[in-house]
């Protein structure tokens, strides 16, 4: 019997894994943003000394994982599993990083929801008693995502006001069966939701229903109120999607507006950095969580947060074939003490 299951989509972790260390590597634009000081490495060259954007992104993942392991005075040999994903075709950033790291590897694709997807699976595998040390890592790169999903970098296009800017960044979190927190306490796994948005330049709107659904489901399954948390933060809805998510959650019966924000709104200065509706990309919630939020939890500025990374599960092919954009959102609750 699934004794750890709560309600329909939530798991309560009986032996909550502790987040031992995190590491973040970001591009220069992210470093210039309001959260720049919280990132471990800010690259001055977004090619990271490599020959291609894809190789640079893979190196970011690899180095972030290594850094997190080093900070904990461990060695890759000590790590039982690595859960990682990214946005590129066949998740090459993650698998090519895993090729170097030689840690047993589960590759994930959850589009931009991958950070909480990897945290969810890592904590469940630890809670289940299958592992002591697990890495959850995620990356995205503006230039590699543009060339795969949109246009060449030098193409002279105009971005509409709903468009979002893919974060260049990799975040890695090292989870352990022992440690002094912060702990991952609840995992709410999302359903794929599609309210029929077709505009690939408005991903925030496409993902907002999934985010709202997962948040509502988390409250229903756990019996918590928004007041239980100091902060509820979605992954990359941007300004447009954030407003929609608040409205949808309100229609579901909960007002989260005073403790809610979105990583894609926080990571850039929306008025100064020419990112239109905000940031997107799997790296967005990865670096905001592994950089800013983790440090705030460590310092006690937050006690309990609910992180909901949000993914748009489209491909250039599905868009060209006229499909609408399905969204997904996974929530993890992270608490300083248990």
């Amino acid at each position: 019997m699934a004794v750890k299951k709560l309600g329909i989509q939530t798991v309560k972790l009986m032996n909550p894994p502790s987040i031992l260390e995190t590491a973040t590597i970001t591009g220069s634009k992210e470093g210039e943003g309001p959260l720049g000081q919280y990132f471990d490495v800010v690259l001055s060259d977004d090619l990271y000394g490599e020959e291609s954007w894809e190789k640079a992104e893979s190196k970011m993942t690899r180095e972030a994982v290594k850094l997190a392991i080093n900070k904990a005075n461990l060695h890759p040999d000590n790590i039982d599993y690595m859960f990682s994903g990214d946005l590129l075709n066949q998740i090459i950033s993650s698998s090519f990083a895993a090729r170097e790291l030689q840690i047993p590897f589960f590759g994930l694709y959850g589009a931009c929801s991958t950070m909480t997807e990897s945290l969810s699976l890592s904590s469940m595998i630890i809670d289940g008693g299958y592992a002591d040390y697990v890495i959850a890592a995620t990356s995205s790169h503006f230039a590699s995502a543009e060339r795969q999903y949109r246009f060449p970098l030098e193409y002279g296009g105009q971005r509409p006001p709903t468009s979002q800017w893919t974060v260049t960044g990799a975040g890695a979190a090292l989870l352990s069966s022992s440690g002094s927190g912060p702990y991952i306490t609840y995992v709410t796994t999302g359903r794929v939701m599609d309210f029929g948005v077709k505009d690939a330049n408005n991903m925030g709107a496409a993902m907002a229903p999934a985010a709202a659904d997962t948040i509502l489901r988390h409250f229903k399954d756990t019996g918590f109120n928004p007041a239980y948390y100091d902060l509820i933060i979605t992954g990359d809805l941007g300004k447009v999607g954030k407003e929609l998510a608040v409205e949808l959650v309100k229609k579901g019966g909960y007002d989260i507006s005073n403790i809610y924000t979105d990583c894609g709104v926080e990571i850039f200065d929306l008025t100064e950095q020419d990112v239109h509706s905000g940031a997107s990309g799997c790296g967005c919630s990865a670096v905001v969580f592994c950089g800013y939020l983790y440090k705030q939890l460590k310092e006690g500025n937050f006690n309990r947060i609910l992180l909901i990374s949000t993914g748009a599960l489209l491909s250039p092919t599905s868009s060209q074939q006229g499909e609408s954009i399905p969204g997904i959102a996974h929530a993890v609750a992270i608490e300083r003490s248990v």
Binding site: P161, V197, A205, D213, R217, V240, S277
Partner: peptide, 29 residues
């Protein structure tokens, strides 16, 4: 969200998106 709410919201959603949709400043453009 519950099925009934989901159905209702998915019907209202297009209007919500249109209402929240920031417009390009067409004169400036």
């Amino acid at each position: 969200m519950e099925k009934k709410l989901e159905k209702q919201l998915s019907e209202e959603f297009k209007n919500m998106v249109d209402k929240n949709n920031p417009q390009s400043s067409i004169i400036k453009d």
